[in-house]
């Protein structure tokens, strides 16, 4: 928390004291104000001082590395099943990074390898859907909120219509129409039904922000629409969207898992946590570890993203510094 200002010479009672102040405050003397800073620069500075940010950042970097280069983390092949290992091997918690670290699943495949190789699909779905939804929904919400009038009427009605469609049931119906359910198909289906939440959140926070006096002040200075939107409205309307988006990211990964569990999400030969959780459904009674590790990874990822979202939101609010 910066120190509140206690400069008693601030208030010139007369013109004379204004000049006194001027003389007393030659900026070349004393400690200079340093180089100019910006919101994003300050936010980054702030982030670096938050332990929670580092926890989530390290986790996310690790997850992204796993997603990008799964081969670096395991020698075992996720599709090689050796039925001699059929459920027999429980997790060997001391066998770090080895094929039997997390044990074997029903078809004798290394759960550790599957968790590692499943990361890519799950993260892709989560990040992909969130990105698509934030860009598309955020943009529409921003347009509706900022311009109002008939643009708002039309966009809001479309949002209402889409909001009425059940998310899971809707995606099941859509995915059912596709014979081959690749990652991008799942992303498209989830994004198609999921963008409305972000659009609504964005619209309402843009409406609040655009009514602020500082927006009027910028207009009075002759600022154009772009400047007003991206300098004034958006930075002040972003916080709720960031929170909703990061929470939704976890929900999308879970939705993919749910769909896979129902047999309508990703399917073999793709590997994903969702598929594994789905496969584990018949075995959890006797072999809970089959479910535990993919589900644990899923929770960890969701946690990392939500924590990051919270930290970023706080860092972007100068009042919370």
């Amino acid at each position: 928390m910066p120190e509140p200002l206690t400069d008693t010479t601030l208030a010139p009672g007369t013109q004379a004291s204004v000049t006194e102040v001027t003389a007393a405050k030659d900026p070349s003397k004393g400690s200079g104000p340093g180089k100019p800073r910006s919101l994003w620069g300050d936010a980054w500075f702030e982030l670096r001082h938050r332990p929670l940010f580092w926890v989530s950042a390290v986790l996310l970097v690790l997850l992204l590395a796993i997603a990008a280069f799964p081969g670096l983390f395991t020698d075992a092949h996720p599709r090689d099943g050796d039925l001699t290992n059929h459920f027999l091997t429980k997790p060997q918690l001391s066998h770090f990074f080895q094929a039997d670290w997390f044990g074997y699943d029903g078809q004798g495949r290394s759960i550790y390898a599957r968790v590692i190789y499943g990361t890519r699909a799950s993260i892709l779905v989560g990040v992909g859907v969130t990105a698509a939804v934030t860009i598309f929904g955020g943009l529409l919400g921003m347009l509706a909120g900022y311009f109002g009038g008939w643009i708002d009427s039309i966009i809001s009605r479309i949002v209402d219509i889409f909001f009425g469609l059940p998310f899971l049931l809707g995606s099941m119906v859509i995915l059912n129409a596709f014979a081959e359910r690749k990652v991008y198909v799942v992303i498209a289906a989830l994004a198609f039904l999921g963008w409305t939440t972000i659009a609504r959140v964005m619209r309402s926070s843009v409406i609040t922000a655009k009514q602020a006096d500082y927006v009027t002040a910028a207009r009075a200075l002759g600022a154009g629409t772009n400047r007003i939107l991206f300098r004034h409205v958006l930075p002040n309307a972003l916080a709720p969207t960031i929170v909703v988006a990061t929470i939704a990211l976890g929900a999308y990964i879970s939705a993919e898992a749910t769909l896979s569990y129902l047999g309508l999400g990703l399917a073999d030969p793709t590997i994903s946590w969702g598929i594994d959780i789905s496969d584990a459904k018949d075995a959890i009674r006797d072999n809970p570890h089959v479910m535990l590790f993919p589900a644990g990874m899923l929770s960890l990822t969701v946690f990392a993203f939500i924590t990051l979202g919270d930290a970023v939101r706080d860092a972007l609010d100068p009042k919370l510094r």
């Binding site: 910006s38 919101l39 006096d213 500082y214 009027t216 002040a217 300098r231 930075p235 002040n236 100068p318």
Partner: peptide
């Protein structure tokens, strides 16, 4: 403006 609390963008530095 009237209200010094809302007429300055809270996310911009005084210099900006």
């Amino acid at each position: 403006f009237q209200d010094p609390y809302t007429s300055l963008n809270p996310r911009m530095t005084v210099g900006d």
